[in-house]
């Protein structure tokens, strides 16, 4: 849902996720006061010739339960890779409370700016 008039600079609407920057470090999930961020990830090995394989965490699932979210921004502040950011758009209302759990693609749609 877009806001009709341009919101003031720094408006806190929805929380957007740039999934390419996320390393599944779990810091946002641990710091969230409402426990509303769910992260699933797995480990992949990248073979390197002549050396031990390099492990990489791959993000499987990133979900924010907006029924719980209190828009404090702690997750955005704590993310070491700036994967999370504020978007001036608002989260749509939903007929069921499960409709307020937004998954990675929906959070990615909120990403604004450069």
């Amino acid at each position: 849902m877009t806001v009709p008039s341009p919101p003031p600079a720094g408006s806190r609407g929805a929380i957007a996720l740039l999934a390419e920057s996320c390393t599944s470090c779990m810091l946002c999930a641990r710091e969230c006061p409402d426990w509303c961020i769910e992260i699933d990830s797995h480990t992949e090995n990248e073979p390197a010739a002549g050396r031990r394989p390099r492990t990489r965490h791959v993000l499987d699932r990133f979900a924010i339960d907006y029924a719980l979210c209190m828009y404090c921004g702690i997750c955005i502040d704590v993310c070491p890779f700036d994967a999370l950011s504020w978007s001036p758009e608002l989260v749509d209302p939903a007929a069921g409370v499960a409709g307020l759990i937004l998954e990675r693609d929906q959070l990615g749609a909120f990403v604004t700016g450069s």
Binding site: T23, S24, C25, M26, A29, R30, E31, C32, W35, C36, I37, E38, I39, D40, S41, H42, T43, T55, H57, D60, R61
Partner: peptide, 14 residues
Amino acid sequence: ARPWPGAKEPGESG
């Protein structure tokens, strides 16, 4: 009572 989402380590799921 509620499972903590932060209990998982990076690279764990479900």
